[in-house]
Design a protein around this nucleic acid. Structure first.
Lengths: 200, 200
DNA sequence: TGACAAACATACCATCTAGTCGGTATTATT
DNA sequence: AATAATACCGACTAGATGGTATGTTTGTCA
């Protein structure tokens, strides 16, 4: 394993509850959250609705568990990088590569995350948002460090992160793992743009 | 009016059908497309459901009309810029400013655009996507011109545009017109990042 | 072998929703 | 004044949906 690879891979669960969450995720992403019924989920999981409710309290809970599971895993990948790398520029590059690798590995999860977070209850939504803020703060911190050491030049690191993550996040709308460019090639183009811009 | 301002302002309709579309848009964005019932829309428009169906054939049609009206207006703003400016770098800058001004002026429209396009029928969705491609092509063309003239350095103008527009588009998730930074200030930071990157 | 809990299935309910249809008031036209 | 089109209202329906309550089977362990 080289220092550059991100090593991000999706967990492999196998118990019934995890399987239900996985098929629910797939259905939510293809059909949408509301157009997917608990009946649909049950069938796709090889259960009846009654059986489904043995494992999960409500449709809300399914949505929440999917959000929570994703953001927790995403955060844990980023935190690993944060500890490993010290140099701010190198750290930012590796954080970005990891972020794009997460988009690659967790495409459905992130799609749901951006499309259906608004359907969480106020309370749960706050909980998830707070963890998403932690995710962003890791990037902000890296950029602040770079700015303090004089390697980055930017008016506001908060805005810079919104800009950078926005560009990456939006990939979930067009990125296809089987497409022309691999995620690593895309990452290189992105990082080039972020670091040096478009102008020669 | 200076050459730099974008002059993008939202149209002001006033007939009943337009009013219905406006309240529907507002409800779709705050509550979501499916959780908003035709009953809700009728009430918000000061009608009964029967009255609502006098103006609109179906809920699908409401969704389509909102998408179409937005993308057509957005396209027309961009095309104006395309004609006005010749220099590639200046053109790209003005296109970007216009894009952000559109996000500012059409925040709800663009939110629905990204959240609910998947709920259009296959046919209508293709129609809308095709116009969205035209929108992107305007940017691609500007970057290609700049690359041919040797002012831009980028591996793929398509990817560059996905990157650039992605960063802008994602603003719809966090931008608030009443927030700390005006859209012009944000535009300046964004354009700085896009043109010259983060590194000193 | 009997008891008991885990892992489901079946049948059901109350509620909500998009859409329809016949009717009516109002305004414009001839 | 008669006709007709416009702009609605009120009541209704058929289907779908989240969730529940009550079984039934299967495995485990004393």
């Amino acid at each position: 394993m080289t220092t550059d690879s991100t090593n991000v891979t999706r967990r492999q669960g196998s118990d019934t509850k995890t399987e239900i969450l996985d098929v629910a995720l797939s259905l939510f992403v293809t059909k949408g959250y509301h157009p997917t019924s608990m009946q649909d989920i049950a069938e796709a999981a090889g259960l009846t609705k009654g059986g489904l409710y043995y494992y999960l309290k409500s449709k809300d809970e399914v949505l929440y568990l999917l959000h929570d599971r994703f953001i927790m895993e995403g955060l844990s990948w980023l935190r690993k990088v944060e500890e490993e790398v010290n140099d701010p520029e190198k750290k930012l590059v590796k954080l970005l590569k990891t972020h794009l690798a997460i988009i690659d590995q967790y495409k459905d999860d992130i799609t749901l995350f951006f499309e259906a977070m608004k359907y969480l209850s106020q309370e749960k939504r706050q909980e998830v948002k707070s963890k998403r803020d932690d995710y962003e703060k890791i990037f902000i911190k890296a950029i602040e460090e770079g700015r303090n050491q004089g390697v980055f030049s930017i008016a506001s690191s908060e805005i810079a992160v919104l800009y950078i993550l926005g560009a990456g996040n939006f990939m979930y709308t067009w990125y296809k793992p089987e497409g022309k460019k691999t995620i690593e090639e895309l990452a290189d183009i992105f990082i080039g743009m972020i670091m040096n811009g478009l102008v020669k």
